[in-house]
């Protein structure tokens, strides 16, 4: 397969997939929370545009609907929700720095290569175009996971989770021209509920540990070695 053999729309599809991958990396490395939420919104827009393009290339009308749903939900509503949450939690100026951003990004690059390696033997020669996009989708999923591992801020972790979902959606759109509409609606609804629930949780977490740094959640553990630390802090 070479790129010249594809139609312009298919090339555009590839371009959008590449850009979504790039946004995943930005999400991982972006220290400012609000900017990260905006990047997530952009990823939603890209996924929606990709769905739209897939609808046009595959002549699959239901995908138009998915594209619209994605745009509204992931490009606008959830980012808006998270943004509002961040403002209400007083996190608009929050920024967290990764300890070794270069190494995390390098790990991300290896995840991309790894997902390509996983997908490479999977499909037939005729489906190389699809396979390549599936590799990218899988990479987006893994990168979302990587983000959840390395970011300590709860809102950033939620962003990682949501971008994993973006990756899954990408895979579904490119591999099977979309999931059945019922499933898709269900997933969208789940994501929406999750976003709302996360919002509630943020307030709960902050109330119990005075922070949204998930590393501090281990204080809730009832292991004996944490106890002295707690009492020490109370003593202060």
């Amino acid at each position: 397969m070479t790129l010249n053999a594809l139609t312009l729309l298919q090339q555009f599809l590839i371009l959008l997939a590449g850009l979504s991958l790039f946004v995943s990396f930005i999400l991982i490395a972006q220290p400012r929370l609000v900017a990260a939420i905006h990047s997530f919104a952009w990823q939603g827009v890209l996924v929606s545009a990709l769905t739209l393009t897939a609808a046009m290339t595959n002549q699959a009308p239901p995908l138009y609907f998915s594209a619209g749903l994605t745009l509204v939900l992931k490009g606008l509503f959830i980012p808006w929700l998270l943004h509002r949450l961040a403002l209400r939690l007083g996190l608009e100026g929050h920024s967290e720095t990764l300890r070794w951003p270069e190494l995390v990004l390098l790990a991300g690059v290896f995840l991309v290569i790894f997902s390509y390696w996983l997908v490479e033997p999977m499909v037939e020669r005729e489906l190389i175009f699809t396979r390549n996009i599936i590799a990218v989708s899988l990479a987006v999923v893994l990168l979302g996971f990587l983000m959840m591992v390395f970011r300590t801020q709860a809102v950033a972790q939620v962003l990682g989770f949501m971008s994993m979902e973006n990756g899954l959606f990408l895979a579904a759109v490119s591999a099977t021209t979309g999931m059945p509409m019922v499933v898709e609606l269900g997933v969208a609804f789940d994501v929406l509920v999750a976003a709302v629930l996360f919002g509630v949780f943020f307030f709960q977490i902050r109330e119990s540990i005075d922070s949204l740094d998930v590393d501090r959640l281990n204080r809730l553990a009832e292991t004996p070695d944490v106890e002295p630390m707690l009492s020490e802090e109370i003593g202060e």
């Binding site: 590839i14 991309v112 190389i128």
Partner: peptide
């Protein structure tokens, strides 16, 4: 990477 993964098969 996008050259290797997406553009050639």
């Amino acid at each position: 990477l996008s050259h290797v993964i997406l553009e050639v098969g």
